[in-house]
C-alpha cells in the first residue's frame, strides 16, 4: 500500500506547555487508524496539526511526500477533511447548504453539481429528509452526520475525526459510528481520535496509543487490546475497559 501521510519528528507547544513531543507516524492509503489515549495526551492537537488548524513548532508533515506547509491552504483542506467534536455546522445555513457552500466556493463546482453531490452524501448518512433543516433544529447525532456529509462532499483523500462521538448521548453514538463504518467499506483513509474502545477494536486497521505527547504503542487492534506490550498502555486499557 502506498503511503499518504508521513509525520516526522512533530513538536507542538502552547507556551511552556509541551503538547506533542516528537511524533513519527506513517499512514497508508485506505488505512483506518484510531488514536486512543488519556485526555491531554495530545491526540486532538496531532489531528489539528495535520490540517494546519495548529501550526507545528517542529518536524514536518508530508502529504503524498510533499510538505503540507507548501500546499496552498484551499487544496490542502479540501484533500484533508475534518470532523469536529462539536460538529461546527455553519449555523446560518441549512443542512444542504452546509454541504454545498464548500464545493461551490472552494472547488468552484456549479450549483447543480454541488447540490447533486450534497444530496448523494446526505442520503448516504441518512440525512436527506432533513436537508432543509437548520443546525439548531437537529439533534447532536444528526448534526454530526451532516458534518460528515459536508466533509465528504469535498472529496477528501483523508478524513480526520476529532472525538466525533464525545459530545453525543449514548444512543446517538451508534448512528454516527455506523456511518463511519460504511466509509471504511468505501476505502477512505481515516484517522479517528476516539474514546470508543469497542469501535477502535472492531473497526480500525491499526490503533495508536498516545500518552504525554508521544506515541507509546502502535499496532494491530486485536494485539494491542488483548496483549498490550507497554505498561502505560496496559494501565490505560485496564482502567477503560473495566469501566
Amino acid at each position: 500500500m502506498s503511503e499518504i501521510l508521513n509525520i516526522q519528528g512533530l513538536y507542538k507547544n502552547f507556551g511552556d506547555n509541551q503538547v506533542i513531543t516528537g511524533i513519527d507516524l506513517s499512514i497508508d492509503k485506505g488505512q483506518v487508524v484510531c488514536v486512543i489515549g488519556p485526555s491531554g495526551s495530545g491526540k486532538s492537537t496531532l489531528l489539528r496539526c495535520v490540517n494546519l488548524l495548529e501550526m507545528p513548532d517542529g518536524g514536518s508533515i508530508l502529504f503524498h511526500g510533499q510538505d503540507i506547509l507548501g500546499i496552498p491552504p484551499s487544496s490542502l483542506h479540501a484533500k484533508i477533511g475534518m470532523v469536529f467534536q462539536q460538529f461546527n455546522l455553519f449555523n446560518n445555513l441549512t443542512a444542504l447548504n452546509n454541504c454545498v457552500a464548500g464545493q461551490m466556493k472552494v472547488l468552484k463546482r456549479s450549483k447543480a453539481d454541488s447540490v447533486e453531490r450534497a444530496m448523494f452524501f446526505l442520503e448516504r448518512v441518512g440525512m436527506l429528509p432533513y436537508r432543509d433543516a437548520l443546525p439548531a433544529q437537529l439533534s447532536g447525532g444528526q448534526k454530526q452526520r451532516v458534518a460528515i456529509a459536508r466533509a465528504l462532499c469535498m472529496d477528501p483523500e483523508v478524513l480526520l475525526f476529532d472525538e466525533p462521538t464525545s459530545a453525543l448521548d449514548p444512543e446517538m453514538v451508534d448512528e454516527v459510528l455506523s456511518v463511519i463504518r460504511t466509509l471504511k467499506d468505501g476505502g477512505l483513509t481515516m484517522v479517528i481520535v476516539t474514546h470508543e474502545m469497542a469501535f477502535a477494536r472492531d473497526a480500525a486497521d491499526r490503533v495508536v496509543f498516545m500518552d504525554a505527547g508521544r506515541v507509546v504503542e502502535d499496532g494491530d487492534p486485536k494485539a494491542l487490546f488483548t496483549a498490550p506490550k507497554n505498561p502505560r498502555t496496559q494501565a490505560f486499557l485496564a482502567r477503560t475497559l473495566r469501566g
Binding site: 488548524l53 484551499s74 483542506h77 475534518m82 462539536q86 461546527n88 464548500g102 472552494v106
Partner: peptide, 22 residues
C-alpha cells in the same frame, strides 16, 4: 463561536469566503 471559523477553514475557505458565507 471559534468552531465556525475552524470548520470553514477545514473545508478550505479563504478568509474572505469564511467571512462572507459563514
Amino acid at each position: 463561536d471559534k468552531g465556525q471559523t475552524e470548520a470553514a477553514i477545514a473545508v478550505g475557505m479563504s478568509h474572505w469566503q469564511r467571512m462572507t458565507t459563514v
